[in-house]
Design a protein around this nucleic acid. Structure first.
Lengths: 324, 324
DNA sequence: CTCCCTCGTGCACGTTTGTGCATAGTGCTT
DNA sequence: AAGCACTATGCACAAACGTGCACGAGGGAG
């Protein structure tokens, strides 16, 4: 808005964060009140002018992170959260930290694939602004279901990403699952769809959560009316443990022969693995099964998860039957 | 020291800076007192675990920066400082901001050339720690003078850089100026000296101030007994406007035919220009002449200077005779 | 011209944070 | 085993900070 306000914010931020002056001293230099400086600073943080990041030296990080990193070959960020918090609070804190961890990764000219779901929705609400040029946010999988167009929920997530990074948003206006694989084949030949698929093929960053079949707090995919009873039965009787962007996989990371995937609109796992930076956000121990499958499938390069889940991941690994 | 303290500091930093919890809440989670958390956080900042940086969008930056950037092709950081502050306070604030601006630039495996002088001394006192591996700090020019070995002053600067970045320090144990150019030629063939010169040739970052012949607050070079009266006379009657690392140049950036340089131990300007990142720190309007010469010579890729000097640089450019 | 809306500002208050000091813990020396 | 030096901790107080509220300036709309 006011250009001088922006430049005041910059000056204030420099003086506060780089010169360790108090807000009071800054107020005197800028000839304004201390409260105004306080507000200038918070707007500077909010607008991404000030970036705070935490770099934990990889080699000295806590043991938990080290073990996960080594075992799965992912860059891991364990979010410290008390075990006593409920799932909603945990999700909120994981999401906030995820949002701020993602910030520094995003840059100009990036093509960022974003999935949807309760995890991504929470993340999108905590994004901090960062000015980039010519970035694109592209939706990873459709969000319509059998009963409604169901677009608003997913599109809110996309919109928040877009406005946080000043990026163009490309929605994927298809249902989450087609009823018939043939319809998908037909649609995939449409030019409007191909444009999205081409963008996805050029993604440099992908951000997603995981769905897990046994989550107490079930993913939208399993509860949102996207699948009918027969589909759910098929899932229950197969070895499927979870999904990423509505593409299902088994505990060993394989996905071949899962017929539901032929009707799904998310990127095939092999395609996803082509993306340079693949950020997976997970909150809540109930997602452990899906998470382990996703890691086995090598879907993530970066993993952000809460401490309890991280601990569970380490303790129960190698015990495929354990889940509680 | 205590490994659990470090990991507590990391947890605290994540919760404070990434999750916006209050120190009180963090204290409860870590089962300690709030004051301890406060201290953990300041140690996290101090040890470089938390990095705060300010990125001003290049295109929207204040007009002053834009003009300097465009005119001289350098990446410029104008430090906001009240004009009423005295030189010592200004230097302190410029130095603090310079130190923190340099931080993010330094990385593992870097070879960092460092000059010496009052500016660099101030900068070295404000460096924030950052853990790097296999970095080297190499002294750009000798610091001995005619009367003493004069090593301590320069070596303090070097040592501070070394310990801030966990880097090896390579001193350059020669005088600032040789009495006879022939001595320099001889020394330059010594293997001990050649080792330093080879390091300098491989520098990826160089950090230096500028000397200016008309500075009221004269650089060590001109006042520290490094030059005798005849030398000073030669400088006064030539067109020399300043120096970088005891190598002199004229207002147009040229340095050919300045005989004093044949006895100087700093890197020739052409060599310096080979370095990828050349960070010049300037505080005080009295250095304007030297600064303009250094910019004309293309010695810097990054310039950090106080606001008054920046303004002077813009207003008086194109008026070569003006200096007040 | 007047009304009304919006937005930025300063004030005042309650909250949050930094720090000097006394104390308790830890490891090393004799 | 006792003494010593050093460091981390918690307490309490002062300093610094965030924010609801009321006010006033600017800018359309009627």
């Amino acid at each position: 808005m006011d250009p001088s306000r922006h430049s005041d914010a910059l000056r204030a931020a420099q003086m506060y964060y780089l010169q360790d002056l108090t807000m009071d001293a800054i107020a005197r230099e800028l000839r304004t009140s201390r409260s105004t400086v306080s507000r200038l600073l918070s707007s500077a943080r909010e607008s991404g002018l000030v970036q705070i990041q935490i770099r934990n030296p990889l080699d000295t990080g806590p043991e938990l992170e080290g073990r996960i990193r080594q075992r799965y070959g992912v860059d891991v960020h364990v979010v410290p959260v008390l075990e006593t918090l409920n799932e909603a609070e945990t999700l909120d804190r994981v999401a906030m930290q995820a949002a701020r961890t993602i910030g520094p990764v995003v840059d100009s000219n990036a093509i960022i694939g974003v999935a949807w779901g309760s995890t991504l929705s929470a993340v999108s609400r905590h994004l901090t602004r960062k000015i980039t040029h010519d970035s694109v946010i592209v939706q990873l999988n459709g969000a319509g279901n059998m009963h409604t167009t169901g677009i608003t929920y997913a599109s809110d997530i996309m919109r928040r990403f877009g406005s946080a990074y000043g990026a163009r948003v490309e929605q994927f206006p298809v249902p989450a699952f087609f009823d018939h694989a043939a319809t998908k084949t037909a649609m995939w030949n449409e030019r409007s769809v191909q444009r999205i698929l081409e963008l996805q093929a050029k993604m440099s960053i992908a951000i997603f959560g995981v769905g897990s079949v046994d989550a107490d707090y079930p993913s939208h995919v399993y509860a949102g009316g996207y699948l009918d009873e027969m589909d759910l039965n098929i899932l229950a009787t197969s070895d499927v443990v979870g999904d990423v962007a509505t593409v299902f996989f088994r505990g060993d990371g394989s996905s071949d022969g899962i017929i539901l995937n032929e009707r799904s609109t998310g990127p095939a796992l092999a395609e996803l693995r082509q993306v340079r930076r693949r950020i997976c956000v997970v909150s809540g121990v109930s997602k452990i099964k899906g998470l382990r499958g996703a890691l086995a499938a090598g879907l993530a390069t970066d993993l952000i998860l809460d401490e309890s889940t991280a601990r569970r991941l380490v303790n129960y690994e190698g015990l495929p039957g354990a889940n509680g």
